[in-house]
Each structure stands twice: as C-alpha cells, then as structure tokens.
C-alpha cells in the first residue's frame, strides 16, 4: 500500500510548492501544456471520427477475417510504445514504406505535430475501439428493431437509439484514450522528436527538464497526477452510469 501511495505523495509534496503557479506560467511549461492539449485534442477527434464506424462494424457484423482484424486493432495496447515508434518510422518516415509517395505529395510528417498525433492515435485509439465495441454490443437490438418498424432509417436509428444508449461506453473509451495519449512518450520521442513549442509534449518536457532544471519537471509531474485522479474519477462515474441499465 505504502509502496503505491508514497511516490504519488512525494510528487505532490515536491510539485505543489509555493513555486507551483510561477513555474506553471513559464513559457516552457505553457508551450508544453498547449502542445499536449492540442495534439491530444486532435487525437480524440480522429479517434471518434474513424473509430466509431469501425467499432460499430465490429460489434454488428460478421465477416471473414474479423477475428484477425479485431486482434490487430488490439495489438497496440500490448505493444511497447517504443516499438510502435519504430514501426511508425519504418512506415511513414522519409525512408519508410510510404516515405517516397508522401514526399512526392509534399507531405513530410516526421518531426511535426502531425507525427505526435499519429503516435498518440496509434497507441491510444484501440482503447476507444474496445470500449465502443462493447458499448454497441450492449445496446438492446429489440429497441433498434422497434424503431425500424416505426419507419426510422438506419442513420436515424443510429443517431437517436444506438448512439445515446452506448454514449456512456463511448465516453469512457474516449477518456481512457485521452489519458493514454497524454502519457505517450516512447513512440513520440522516436517518431516526432522533441522541440519546444512544436512537438515537446508534457512527458517529453518532464524528461528533458529532469536533465537541467528540475522545477518544470516537478510542476508538470504534479499536474499529471492531478489529471490522472480526475480521469479515474470520471471513468468511475461513467462506469457506474452504464451499469444502471
């Protein structure tokens, strides 16, 4: 017990000192918070847009190779992030599989905020996919069928029946995805590099600050602890919400 609690307490004790707010307002720290919020925001948007249809498809239809696809989509959850980074480099880097076509199209992702988003999407989106799929599977098909016999088309059924009923699951998945994206380190430092104001996210900033000026590292660590608490609280809330039904 003490083993689990003590490090967190140490972080809060050292991080939440009188220097907390002045350090928080330093450009280095603000830049980092901005980058992290922006990139994780993009990641969440892309996750919802691309992940929801896939999760729905996986929950509702059987097709050849479904198990394989299902497993592949879960793979990033168990894959070490640094391996994900190597994979992204080999696929989308300049000398990677898609490097030449991307270069021709005038797109160069490496070392850009887009690379940060790609790294986060790769490691974090599966969390949303999993929970969203479970959410869609939990929706009572009879209710959907009833709506359909009342003349609702498929989109209307999805929009007014399936989506609201699965919403708690989707939200929980989204929160988990966000937390995972915010904590991303291994894939990001390899695939996106580390530049203040461009690709240096909170975790990368903590890592680089540790080597010179401890204060920003402590403050950012404390912020991450607070964020983690909040995320847990929200997930708990949502969890109890969808067990009522």
């Amino acid at each position: 017990m003490l083993f689990l609690v003590l490090p967190v307490q140490a972080l809060l004790l050292r991080g939440l000192s009188a220097q907390f707010f002045p350090t928080l307002l330093r450009p280095v720290v603000l830049d980092t918070l901005r980058i992290s919020l922006l990139t994780t925001g993009c990641t969440m948007l892309l996750t919802v847009l691309l992940g929801t249809p896939v999760a729905w498809l996986l929950a509702r239809y059987d097709f050849p190779g479904k198990t394989v696809l299902d497993t592949l989509l879960d793979l990033p959850i168990v894959l070490p992030p640094v391996v994900a980074g190597v994979g992204l480099l080999l696929a989308f880097g300049r000398s990677g599989l898609l490097g030449a076509p991307l270069e021709l199209a005038g797109i160069s992702v490496a070392f850009s905020p887009a690379a940060v988003v790609m790294a986060q999407l790769f490691v974090a989106a599966p969390f949303y996919l999993r929970t969203a799929k479970a959410g869609f599977m939990a929706v009572d098909r009879d209710v959907e069928d009833a709506a359909r016999t009342d003349g609702a088309d498929r989109w209307t059924v999805f929009r007014f029946i399936t989506w609201p009923l699965a919403a708690a699951f989707l939200l929980e998945g989204l929160v988990l995805t966000w937390a995972r994206a915010l904590g991303e380190f291994g894939a990001t430092i390899l695939f996106a590099g580390s530049l203040q104001g461009k690709t240096r996210t909170i975790t990368l900033a903590i890592y680089s600050a540790l080597e010179s000026d401890l204060a920003p590292a402590l403050v950012l660590s404390a912020v991450m602890v607070l964020v983690a608490f909040t995320v847990l609280a929200v997930v708990r809330r949502l969890g109890s919400a969808h067990t009522w039904r």
């Binding site: 880097g93 300049r94 000398s95 490097g99 070392f111 850009s112 580390s194 530049l195 690709t199 680089s208």
Partner: peptide
Amino acid sequence: VVSEEPNVRQVALKVQLGEA
C-alpha cells in the same frame, strides 16, 4: 531545427534514418 535530442547518438540516428 526540427528536433533537439537528448544525446548525440540520437542526433546521428536521425540522419542515418534519413529523417533529417
């Protein structure tokens, strides 16, 4: 400058990979 790396071998690696 697109990235500031934590050690010199990481810097060299980025050129070796053709990223920089």
